[in-house]
Design a protein around this nucleic acid. Structure first.
Lengths: 210, 210
DNA sequence: GTCTATACGGCGATAGAC
DNA sequence: GTCTATCGCCGTATAGAC
């Protein structure tokens, strides 16, 4: 059965934007379980029926939020990579930390675990961002791991984006032991395969806090 | 307000065990969102009121499941560490993979993100397991990272337990790019700081598949 | 195109009868 | 120790007003 033929509000609607803003706020402060039609409506100052008019299902709300946030992220990453072309690894590391700490990403990954539509979107987004990173690294084939820790570009990018998410997930559960050590160690590793030209000039090289 | 003064069924009840078995089954096959009083009751062949008699809140169900599963895990880890005292890192790496792939751990971490009681339990469990690992490594202070990737015991243990979870989380969303590379690379790293005496004798050294 | 009122079944949780 | 009744949320579908 096609998911109903109900009418849906236009994507250009201003009300739609207000609703999405509210959704983002709720996700960050209270988590996705509190994103309900009634709660969103109350905080946005509209009726829950109106929220349903623009977003027929809860999944459609989350998908819209993911897409909006992702476009911003992709743009920021591409710009940063272009602005500092001589230290892509450091740029990616900083980006991954900012992304992971944005909180929404963790929420979405958790959501994706049991909502197929959202899982698919997350996979697509991740692939797109990873491709941007791989394209940049392809231009400098010299970048790889060390003898004791051999890594091709793909593995490198996976770790760079995964470690912040992993530490952030642990932090969400209240676990922070040895996080500082892991961060420092991985930054040493990055520095060893991509000496940062900006270290010393800027306030610090690879930045990131657990 | 104290979470109600309702009566609770005895922990030795056989019915209670049957219910918990059912809960584990549902979590593994359908995920925690499908653990509801009505579903558990139906699959266990009892009334939902009876489930509520033994587990007054859903959190109490999840906590009981976590504790049961954790006791088994701790025992398995301690035994494996004792059985192969000359390669603790390889033992921990294998344990972490088994744990991560057990699926329930991912479910619990996701749950803990928004249920404080469960987050606290997860933190406690993680700390306990990590302590077991740190105690073993403390007896062989020679174990540390390399020059390019310096790691103390704490950082090492964090990565060993975190990487499988991180890759497994991505896999849940349908992302598997470069996972093989990351695994192979990290195993090379482990081998470089703890040459495995069993490599060649046993079917393979550090085992783990994404 | 925008918005509202209303109804349905399922949910976690509680109080209390047998 | 077992089970029923009930409450107030939830997602979502529908029908219809402006």
């Amino acid at each position: 059965m096609p998911p109903s033929t109900r009418r849906v509000g236009a994507e250009t609607s201003k009300t739609r934007d207000v609703i999405l803003d509210t959704v983002e706020k709720i996700m960050v402060t209270d988590g996705y379980p509190n994103v309900t039609y009634r709660v969103v409506a109350a905080k946005a100052g509209v009726t829950s029926s109106l929220v349903q008019y623009y977003f027929p299902t809860l999944d459609s709300i989350f998908l819209a939020a993911i897409r909006r946030r992702t476009e911003q992220n992709e743009k920021r990453l591409a710009e940063a990579l272009q602005a500092r072309p001589d230290e892509p690894l450091h740029v990616m590391w900083e980006f991954s930390w900012a992304e992971a700490k944005g909180a929404m990403v963790t929420e979405f990954m958790a959501l994706g675990n049991h909502r197929p539509a959202i899982g698919a979107e997350i996979a697509q987004v991740t692939a797109r961002i990873r491709q941007i990173q791989l394209d940049v690294l392809a231009e400098r084939s010299s970048i790889t791991g060390t003898t004791e820790f051999p890594l091709d570009a793909g593995g490198l990018v996976t770790l760079i984006s995964g470690i912040p998410k992993m530490l952030n997930l642990e932090k969400g559960a209240g676990i922070t032991d040895a996080h500082k050590e892991v961060v420092a160690s991985f930054e040493t590793f990055i520095n060893s395969i991509e000496p940062s030209p900006s270290t010393g000039r800027r306030k610090g090289a690879a930045r990131g806090r657990s």
